[in-house]
Simulated assay, not measured.
Amino acid sequence: MKKFNRYYKKVLLVVVVFTSVISLVGCSNNGRKIKIATKPMTEQFILGEMLALFIEDNTDFKVEITKGVGGGTSNIHPAIVKGDFDLYPEYTGTGWSFVLKEEGIPDDKTLYKGLTEKYENQYNLKWVGLYGFNNTYGLVIRKDISEKYNIKTYSDLAKYSSELIFGAEYDFYEREDGYDALCSTYGLKFKKAIDMDIGLKYQAINSKEIDVMNIFTTDGQLATSDIVVLEDDKNFYQTYYCGTVVRKDVLKEHPELEEVLMKMENILTDKEMAVLNNKVEADGLDEREVAKEFLSSKGLLK
């Protein structure tokens, strides 16, 4: 009997140890947080929530989001290099010109190749996919005028600009790539150019006080205004495609994370991003609910 009891205790000990090991393996990421940072803008808040939903839906990681980091890239970039954050949404144009301080703007394919290589070599950071939309500067025109003159591009606009009123915020007239450079490139000569508050531009064009104005291509109010976004046919503006920047050591430690983040590849168009921004800014909806609804509508959440 004593011999049997000793044998039973040994078997029991082996079972307990084996069960504990299995438990530890199954919960290998328990307690591990993925830290996301976002810039202080609606679009980034929504993207941060999308990333969090993707990660939590496909892994056992917990996600911590630091929303609206003051200074945007100027403070997030050094913080992620230091290890304070694991990943964040960034724009190709910002990475190229602001972070890398590269002069000259090559075509999109060349820029992205150079951007990703330099980020990995210089900062040990990796760009994991692009979401699909391009939040760059642009011009819009009232829809009725676009249809009347068949204006679809900046070059088309130049033919009729002398009959139209242009509106923009003060900064646009002072920027190096602002009003003067734009007009010089396309031969634009507006009947009148008005300096206005940035928050009143959409109201002004909707009430027909102005005919043309500058915008960001994912502005929320684009979704509800009767206007047409014109094609920058000479590629005057730099592109700002958005994607996820991640610390390489995080991906090395957790390679499954890269596959999850790649699910964000090409899921958003400019128009879709504008609609989502408008739901938060105009309709007052919660960023996480907006993100969740969009992902669910695309069948991207379990």
Rank of each mutant, 00 (worst) to 15 (best):
E64S: 02
N235C: 05
K234R: 14
N266R: 09
L295A: 06
F236G: 02
V14N: 06
T92R: 04
Y7G: 07
M213R: 05
K126N: 01
K118P: 03
D171T: 08
T136G: 13
L285R: 14
G138L: 01
F85A: 00
Y8Q: 07
K2C: 11
T66C: 00
S28E: 10
I198D: 10
G199T: 09
I151L: 05
V14D: 09
V228D: 02
E56M: 02
F236W: 04
N278E: 15
S207G: 00
Y173T: 04
C27S: 12
E103M: 10
D177A: 06
K10N: 12
G71Q: 10
Q221T: 08
F172M: 02
F236C: 07
Y91C: 07
D226T: 03
I80F: 00
V246G: 02
Y202A: 03
R32T: 13
K191V: 06
V275F: 05
D283R: 04
G220W: 10
L257T: 01
E56L: 02
R175A: 11
I80V: 15
D283K: 13
Y237R: 05
F54G: 04
W127P: 11
E256T: 05
T269F: 02
G299V: 05
P106Q: 11
N30S: 14
L12V: 14
Q44S: 08
V69N: 00
E272I: 01
E102D: 05
D57I: 03
D195T: 09
K39W: 07
E258W: 11
A282Y: 11
D86F: 04
Y241M: 06
L24V: 15
I55W: 00
K143G: 07
D233H: 12
D84V: 06
L13S: 13
Y173L: 08
G299W: 09
G93A: 14
S161E: 06
S97F: 09
D177R: 11
Y202D: 08
D249R: 02
V69W: 00
K302H: 09
A168R: 04
C27A: 12
R142W: 07
D86L: 04
V250N: 00
M264I: 08
Y137A: 12
S23D: 12
P255Q: 13
N266S: 07
G114D: 10
S297Q: 12
T19Y: 12
M262Y: 12
H77T: 06
K9G: 05
G178Y: 07
W127C: 07
S146C: 09
